[in-house]
Amino acid sequence: MGTELLGAELLGKVAVVTGGSSGIGLGIAHRLAARGCHVVLIGRNQKALDDAAAEMNGTAFRTDVTDADGLREVAEAIKARFGRLDILINNAGIGPVARMADMTRADWAWIIDTNLWSVINGLDAFLPLLWANPEPSYILNTSSISGMFTGPTIGGYAATKYAVVAMSETLAAEMAQAGGKTSVSVFLPGPVRSNIHESDRNRPQDLDGQLKSMRLEDAEGFENVTIPWMDADDAGEIAVSAMLAGTLYIWTHPEGTAPISARFRAIEQSIKDSKAG
């Protein structure tokens, strides 16, 4: 990462990034820091957090995003230290797979807690700080390209990511209705280099379930596919640039969205058929 400031619009701003010590979260944090932000990283791996924070002169908090009280404590610490928050990046998540017929209630609890409740907890903890800030502020919720279409074995993951899209759309409308001071974006990345395929490292020890981590190369339907991997810092630059531009839907791989267009066409056709019937 270069040390140059990419414009001064974020100079001195304070940004929270959950899941910020690796992968997409770290890529976003790098690009925010390059623009002059003080970045507050939240995650579970203390060493990775400390290393990343030292690299960008940021701040690290070891907190589980499923712990609502823990995130509120971080919000209080940010308020006490900086007196403000300008940017919230709800990014933490996991990506294990299993067929829905095989998933246990424990599986559902794990993936919903980590991918959906983490966003809810982040909004609960940090939205009051954003709302109290008289200057423009930003929220970016990381969903996935699978937040717009799905397939075999990713039903649990897609269900949570669809929900993040719906929450982001609703929040964007509500923020606009309230005056537009806080803009909302939803990030819909495709294949980005990260360690999401190692989600089992954060698997609760008492989890009795079938969700398993898997590399995309080994997933059903991808055995003979050339996957257009993107570097996490490049994905972070896309996310931050589009967020600052006020873009609601942010894509890393627009060329891979044909299944989404097909889904929309099928929906539109079903509406036409219903009207005709």
Results as ranks from 00 to 15, higher is better:
residue 4 E to A: 14
residue 4 E to H: 14
residue 5 L to D: 08
residue 7 G to K: 14
residue 9 E to N: 11
residue 15 A to Q: 06
residue 16 V to S: 06
residue 18 T to F: 03
residue 18 T to A: 00
residue 19 G to M: 05
residue 20 G to T: 04
residue 30 H to G: 04
residue 33 A to W: 02
residue 34 A to T: 10
residue 38 H to E: 13
residue 39 V to I: 12
residue 42 I to M: 11
residue 42 I to G: 06
residue 42 I to C: 13
residue 44 R to C: 09
residue 44 R to A: 07
residue 45 N to C: 08
residue 46 Q to W: 07
residue 47 K to G: 04
residue 47 K to D: 09
residue 53 A to Q: 04
residue 56 M to K: 02
residue 58 G to D: 01
residue 60 A to T: 02
residue 62 R to S: 06
residue 64 D to V: 07
residue 64 D to W: 08
residue 67 D to E: 10
residue 68 A to E: 14
residue 69 D to N: 11
residue 71 L to T: 05
residue 75 A to G: 09
residue 77 A to Q: 13
residue 78 I to P: 03
residue 79 K to Q: 12
residue 85 L to T: 03
residue 88 L to S: 09
residue 95 G to N: 07
residue 95 G to Y: 10
residue 95 G to T: 11
residue 97 V to C: 07
residue 100 M to G: 10
residue 103 M to A: 15
residue 105 R to C: 10
residue 106 A to Y: 03
residue 107 D to Y: 06
residue 111 I to G: 00
residue 111 I to C: 04
residue 114 T to L: 12
residue 116 L to A: 13
residue 117 W to M: 15
residue 120 I to M: 14
residue 120 I to R: 10
residue 121 N to I: 08
residue 121 N to S: 08
residue 124 D to L: 02
residue 125 A to C: 09
residue 127 L to R: 11
residue 127 L to S: 08
residue 127 L to A: 13
residue 128 P to K: 02
residue 132 A to W: 02
residue 133 N to C: 12
residue 133 N to I: 12
residue 134 P to V: 14
residue 134 P to L: 10
residue 134 P to E: 14
residue 136 P to C: 01
residue 139 I to F: 03
residue 146 S to Y: 15
residue 148 M to V: 09
residue 148 M to S: 04
residue 149 F to I: 06
residue 149 F to C: 06
residue 150 T to S: 15
residue 150 T to R: 06
residue 151 G to A: 14
residue 151 G to M: 15
residue 152 P to T: 13
residue 152 P to H: 10
residue 154 I to T: 12
residue 154 I to Q: 13
residue 158 A to W: 07
residue 158 A to K: 05
residue 159 A to C: 14
residue 160 T to N: 12
residue 161 K to Q: 13
residue 164 V to H: 01
residue 166 A to K: 12
residue 170 T to C: 14
residue 170 T to K: 08
residue 172 A to E: 11
residue 173 A to C: 10
residue 174 E to W: 07
residue 182 T to Q: 11
residue 184 V to F: 07
residue 184 V to N: 05
residue 188 L to R: 01
residue 188 L to G: 01
residue 191 P to D: 04
residue 192 V to K: 00
residue 193 R to C: 07
residue 194 S to A: 12
residue 199 S to A: 15
residue 199 S to D: 12
residue 201 R to G: 05
residue 203 R to Y: 05
residue 204 P to H: 02
residue 205 Q to W: 08
residue 206 D to V: 05
residue 206 D to W: 05
residue 208 D to M: 05
residue 211 L to E: 00
residue 211 L to W: 02
residue 211 L to Q: 00
residue 212 K to Y: 06
residue 212 K to F: 01
residue 217 E to L: 09
residue 218 D to K: 14
residue 219 A to Q: 10
residue 220 E to T: 15
residue 220 E to I: 15
residue 221 G to V: 02
residue 222 F to K: 00
residue 223 E to P: 01
residue 223 E to D: 13
residue 229 W to C: 00
residue 229 W to Y: 05
residue 231 D to Y: 04
residue 234 D to S: 09
residue 234 D to T: 13
residue 237 E to I: 01
residue 238 I to A: 00
residue 251 W to P: 00
residue 253 H to I: 03
residue 258 A to V: 10
residue 258 A to E: 14
residue 260 I to C: 04
residue 260 I to A: 10
residue 262 A to H: 14
residue 275 K to E: 15
